[in-house]
Design a protein around this nucleic acid. Sequence first.
RNA 1: UCCCAGGUAGUUCAGCGGUAGAACGCCAGACUUUGAAUCUGGUAGUCGUUGGUUCGAUUCCAACCCUGGGAGCCA
Length: 559
Amino acid sequence: MEEPATQDFVREWVKADTESKKFGGRVQTRFPPEPNGYLHIGHAKSIYLNFGVAEEFGGKCLLRFDDTNPETEDPAFVTAIQEDLSWLGVSSAEPARFASDYFPQLYAWAEDLVRKGLAYVDDQDAETISEQRGGFGQPGIESPFRGRPVEENLGLFRQMRDSAFADGAKVLRAKIDMQADNMWLRDPVLYRIRRTPHHRTDNQWVIYPTYDWAHGQSDAIEGVTHSICTLEFADHRALYDWLLSQIDLPGDRPQQNEFARLNVTHWVLSKRVLRALVEDGHVDGWDDPRMPTLRGLRRRGYPPSAIKAFVDRVGVAKSNSVVEVELLESFVRTELNRSSLRRMAVVKPLKLTITNWPEGQVELMEVVNNPEDPDAGTRQVPFSGELWIEQDDFRLEPPPKYYRLTPGREVRLRNAFFVTATDAVTDDDGNVVEVLATYDPETLGGSAPDGRKVKSTMHWVSAGHALDATVHQYSRLFTEPHPGADGTDPLSSVNPNARETNPAKVEPALAEVAPGQVVQFERLGYFAADLDSPMVFHRTVGLRDEWAKIQKRKKNQPK
RNA sequence: UCCCAGGUAGUUCAGCGGUAGAACGCCAGACUUUGAAUCUGGUAGUCGUUGGUUCGAUUCCAACCCUGGGAGCCA
């Protein structure tokens, strides 16, 4: 098995370390979500990066919950995140880890720091500490408590642990450099007092480590060699290195590097905005198919393999970027084209009556399930003189380049006969309510013995055999490609019409689709059967649509 | 204002001393019982700017400009 794995700076970095035997050639990474929300497609990039790199270099990747803030975390998210991970198809031979498992060790190391005179207890409040930190270009000033003797610090720190002080009354700070250009080196907070029960340690602790104190040390405890995080942590790297260099490590000293998080056009991947979408009722929930959450994508029918192919193609770099959602969709189509069964469904039904069809006769058509996969076999589809066709497939007065049904024109009904429209019935408002047509019995199978050609092929469903279904079709969740880019609230460009729901008529075989299964509705797109409700379908993605493009081009053309 | 990172086709990325490549997009053709799929071809870039080193720079150096991140007891 060769590894042509896309070369990126992360893999080059890891490769250089394995070649120089920096960690004895060992490679270990981690995926460290905080259990305070649902995973989205941006996390998929990080997941496939961390698990992928570990696998490619014969190392391992652990899932570790960074649960150091009891106020926002919930065990329900632990379960949800693990479900999403297994849906993505990544798994670790080892059980998930929790930063909270390391609280005793973290505390012990913090005492070491205090003993070495590298950390002190500060009695000031958050606002004061923040003011003293200074600004960009201006040095900070030292806390009046910075010079506390070691023994006093140790006693105070233990009292903090033993619940002697109120929330926020004291913090433990690293003693580094209040003049540093890097703000994170200006005596960062390591521990804070929070009398909040933790989802795993309950009331065992009232002091909690901050991210900076927990992350690198947890990496070290687990034996992580390459700690890969996103760009906004780049400034923390100096602190990560400093803290790790001051304590006695059980093994190798991990190192951090940062990559650019994923952004996708017409979507927003920020917990805040995602939460607002749910809470303000723009979507039905975290698993709404319009959402970029992994649960939303799953419900929508996105195959994990397509998500993986997408993030692989996007690559890993340090430059902030926004990937076009069309690229993701192209991978979804490629995967689904290969794997999904073809079915016929009419989303906006229009009655088509074949006037010369023998009264009451039903014919069963043998239809291929997937032209891309001979093993998928065939099925039988009932055909009769009363059919449903797509409203869009008939025009009384056809625009230029319209190939479909129109009075006098002959077209092919897919897997059946040629039909010619003879007349149309309209209602009082002039809307077409029924199309009358004749069929040519010689064209069974889809071609005429005289070699005559038709311009188009249409899908259909026999009216007497059709099943009712609800079909949701989705368009962009945000109308703007870069929501909020101009400084406005991203929520102001939420597309209120991102979901269009229609009562559809579908062929009988659709009754046998499994929840979550994705099939292609011929000529329309790929549709996923809802996970919970039968006969409800979500459009995963449409087919490439040449006709839609022609219309769009015409619309955009200045007169 | 200071620190860090980045600026190569519409987009995402390669290239890192011999004046540019891929994918998606876009355009055209072939084929076709999905205006799908598939196949073929094409389009596209003053390589942020200005100087310097060099026979030669997208690649090395310098300055400048632009973009993103950073002053939580969030992660």
